[in-house]
Write a protein that binds this DNA or RNA. Structure first.
Lengths: 240, 240
DNA sequence: AATGAGTAAATAATGTATGATATCGTTTGA
DNA sequence: TCAAACGATATCATACATTATTTACTCATT
């Protein structure tokens, strides 16, 4: 048997991973609900949604049904779908639960720590620090709100990296769900509260304690950040 | 103004709460997957499911989409729906996560304890103790497996009652999801392991510690029960 | 005039049927 | 032995029919 001179390069049997319309609508709806584009309490009319995302009614229904199981839309038989209302109580619940879940997940991640996990945190933190935040105050009046999606994306990645080593798929899934629910409140009510936060320092403190293996300090730093977010939200609410 | 002698008793505008076909199929599928009637790894063909539950394809797709967000069915675009496979690793993850989540929820429930909550636990435990378990060994060969759904129902209610006072809707939702995922393993692989368990004593121990306000002992008793379940599962698996 | 029951029209969710498109298993040909 | 091609099967999307809810209106009663 002779070696081939031209590498046969088996064409990767990569499934093209085509997306169905239902999945496309699912992601679009999810994004628009989390970003507050679709307002809390708003009724989601099938036909409107279908037209909005250029899809049929059937894919829309499938997307809405998926989201209803993630508590990102409310559903009532024969009455339709709604964007879930927001409330201070709900946000308090989300933050508190997130503190428990991610606190535990961080603790376990540190217990199981590996070099690869630590590297991923360093990297995620570095990338996050190098991603600028565009403040609303610096844009001209009448301009659309600034797009911070790169920062948002890296922020999510950073927090996922912290707890990624906890060893529990289910706990990570819960953390992800809660992160999403929490982000919704940030987008809806606190779009412009970035500036008052020394988030770079906060993140650095979490990273330092985590890499030092100081579980107690790391968890407290993480939870402290979430509780600060809640505090700002409460002030924002009472100030209006 | 005189008081009316015949109470007008405004007829409660109680919505009849009709169930759609999609919801009916959703519950039926959920039950059959948890009970292991639909086997792990099995492909869920839309038409088959539709016929099985006497429904159209559309309601079936909606039900499957809901369940996919609860991890009770796996979904792949253009490839269909599947009953999730089971694995020892997955069950370990479920039990461990359940210990964390319910441990925390029980701790918080005790911290916020009220008389109503304690009463509900007493009652749920009492009802559970008075519900007999029908053992497979005691039925004639060839007979269908015994129906323990009353016990299962009360068992669920008991565990929900323990943590109901934790004050977090989201945590309770997670606990519920995990309970369901865990029950699936019990139904699939341990249908006949009831007898070897002194579950009445185990439950009583949890109740005693809980009502005594002994958080540490209560949580350990609760987690101990789950870990015992895992141990039995591991033995069942290796013994076959 | 204001209130409320009853009723009919409009609206929207739900379900059915059908056609389009992708995947999967098999066969055929080099 | 491998790969391309074909046919069978199933998912997905659209169009349409059905059923429930919501709204608007009428009219009797207070």
């Amino acid at each position: 048997m002779t070696t081939r001179t031209t590498a046969p390069r088996r064409v990767a049997p990569r499934r093209v991973e085509k997306e169905t319309a239902a999945t496309t609508v699912y992601h679009a709806l999810k994004r628009d609900i989390v970003h507050g584009v679709l307002e809390p309490g708003h009724k989601l009319l099938i036909d409107q949604i279908a037209e909005r995302y250029s899809a049929g009614t059937n894919p829309v229904r499938e997307a809405l049904n998926r989201l209803s199981s993630e508590r990102l839309v409310d559903r009532e038989d024969l009455r339709g779908f709604f964007v879930p209302p927001i409330s201070l109580d709900d946000f308090r619940d989300i933050v508190r639960t997130r503190c428990w879940v991610e606190g535990k997940a961080l603790e376990e991640s540190i217990r199981n720590r590996t070099e690869a996990w630590e590297d991923a945190i360093i990297l995620a933190n570095h990338r996050l620090q190098n991603t600028p935040i565009h403040y609303y105050e610096h844009t001209e009046p009448g301009m659309p709100p600034p797009d911070n999606s790169p920062w948002e994306e890296r922020h999510r990645t950073f927090h996922r990296a912290l707890i990624a080593n906890c060893g529990s798929r289910h706990l990570l899934r819960f953390a992800d769900e809660l992160m999403l629910l929490g982000e919704r409140y940030r987008f809806i009510s606190m779009a412009n509260s970035y500036p008052r936060r020394r988030s770079v320092d906060e993140h650095q403190a979490i990273v330092d304690a985590t890499l030092a293996g100081d579980t107690k300090r790391a968890v407290e730093a993480l939870q402290g950040q979430y509780q600060l977010t809640l505090k700002i939200y409460e002030e924002t609410m009472s100030g209006e």
